[in-house]
């Protein structure tokens, strides 16, 4: 299972990668594996203001739906519309091409509340035992 250490994670299995004053968000490799083949994504509108923990969209496989939670507060500045027609990228490239939204952070200190790779790995491993 891939858990790159260049980014942070949430307990709800989103990853957050800092890019200047912005954060790129997607779902973890573990999350995509649990879901199975992604067939549909519900993305927010660009410009939407999110508070940390808000549901900003949903990702669906054939038999499951998972809400997506904002790992930090801020404004949605970009969404990955390419994945709407290529949902398989969320499975095949969860950490790269399968990113979901880009948020301009309003409170970068919130990043401290997220998990680092090791802590996230521990959570995932505990869950599968």
């Amino acid at each position: 299972m891939l858990i790159p250490d260049d980014r942070k994670y949430s307990v709800t299995h989103e990853w957050a990668k800092v890019e200047g004053d912005k954060v790129r968000v997607g779902i973890s490799d573990h999350a995509q594996e649990e879901l199975g083949d992604v067939v549909y994504l519900d993305l927010p509108e660009v410009g939407r203001i999110l508070s940390k923990g808000d549901v900003f969209g949903a990702v669906e496989s054939v038999k499951a739906v998972s809400d997506l939670y904002a790992p930090v507060s801020g404004e949605v500045v970009e969404t990955n519309t390419d994945i709407l027609n290529h949902t398989e990228r969320v499975n095949e490239s969860a950490y790269d091409e399968g990113w979901i939204i880009l948020i301009r952070m309003s409170d970068p200190s919130e990043l401290d509340g997220l998990l680092d790779a090791d802590a996230y790995r521990q959570i995932v491993e505990e869950a599968s035992h």
């Binding site: 199975g36 083949d37 067939v39 549909y40 496989s61 054939v62 038999k63 949902t87």
Partner: peptide, 12 residues
């Protein structure tokens, strides 16, 4: 008559 069906393709 059929084996397991591709449900992902059925949606996509």
């Amino acid at each position: 008559p059929v084996s397991r069906l591709n449900e992902t393709a059925a949606v996509k």
